[in-house]
Simulated scan of single mutants.
Amino acid sequence: MEERAAPPLRMTAKEFHARPGVEDWRVLYWGAHAFYACDGFAHAARLVGAVARVVAEVGHEPDVDVRPHGITLRTFTQRNGSLSAIDAELARRVSEVVRAEGGRPDPSQLMVLGLAVAQDRGVDVRPFWSAVLGYEHVDDADAIDPHRRNPHVWVHELDPPKPGRGRTHIDISVPADQARARVDAALAAGGRLVDASPYGWWTIASPENHGIDIAAWPDVEDHEEDAAADDD
């Protein structure tokens, strides 16, 4: 029987940020991300061409979103967004070539949006959300756009249970060094702080009591025991 190759060792956000040359990148939901501002569509296309040359050499493909004002990149190793050493190497080399072509890093433009859907104990609503959105299941609780364009759906139980009451809130993943400014802006615009965690997230209610979670924790995550479990 042919032996399967061992999966790459998972890299935590802290380990990723410790690598030299990745200062432009932030770890949000679903991987490590970078944004580079540019001077028009032709310039953006030139930046993508430089990225493509690195991809061919490294052998690891990122997601790239191209707009006339800039390009956004995301790299990951596992479908759940986990990172490995090849992501850090790709990030380092991409940063070098994109900066050389005049791309200007701006982490304040990075954000990943998610929908958190509550369900009662013993109920599974993820198949419904996957069907209605055309999404695919990832791990035990998430559903994602197979093209990774649109917000993910995270399904969780209500605690305490509230049978028959479907609830949703919005999850916003931003760089750790941008989170406090985002929270302050939301509060200044009429939001109300409901909860805060020393681990890097804030729950905010809108003036009409809509729930929003602003999460900085993916960018500082360093749970060695989780990393070891994911590598099993």
Rank of each mutant, 00 (worst) to 15 (best):
A6I: 07
L9N: 01
M11F: 11
A13P: 06
K14Y: 10
E15G: 13
F16T: 01
F16C: 05
H17N: 07
A18G: 02
R19P: 00
V22K: 12
D24S: 14
W25Q: 06
R26C: 13
V27Q: 09
V27I: 06
L28F: 07
L28P: 07
W30N: 09
A32S: 08
H33A: 01
A34D: 03
A37I: 05
G40T: 03
H43P: 09
A45S: 12
L47M: 10
L47N: 02
V51F: 14
A52C: 03
V55E: 10
E57N: 06
V58D: 04
V58Q: 05
G59A: 04
H60R: 11
H60E: 06
H60L: 12
E61W: 02
D63C: 02
D63V: 11
D65N: 09
V66C: 09
P68E: 01
L73T: 08
Q78I: 04
S82L: 11
S84H: 04
S84I: 03
A85R: 10
I86S: 12
D87S: 06
D87C: 15
A88C: 07
A88G: 14
E89M: 08
L90H: 06
V94R: 00
V97L: 08
V98R: 01
R104H: 07
P105N: 04
M111V: 15
V112R: 11
L113G: 00
A116M: 11
V117E: 07
A118Y: 10
R121W: 11
F128D: 03
S130R: 14
L133D: 01
G134H: 07
Y135W: 07
Y135R: 10
H137R: 15
H137P: 11
V138H: 02
A141W: 13
A141T: 11
I144G: 01
R148T: 03
R148Y: 13
W154L: 11
V155T: 08
H156N: 01
H156Q: 07
P160Y: 01
P160L: 00
R165F: 09
G166H: 13
R167T: 14
T168E: 09
D171R: 07
I172P: 00
Q178F: 01
Q178I: 14
A179R: 13
A185S: 11
A188V: 06
A189S: 14
G191A: 09
G191P: 07
R192V: 14
L193P: 06
V194P: 03
A196K: 13
W202T: 01
A205I: 02
S206L: 08
P207D: 02
E208M: 04
E208Y: 08
I214Y: 03
E221W: 06
A229D: 10
D232Q: 13
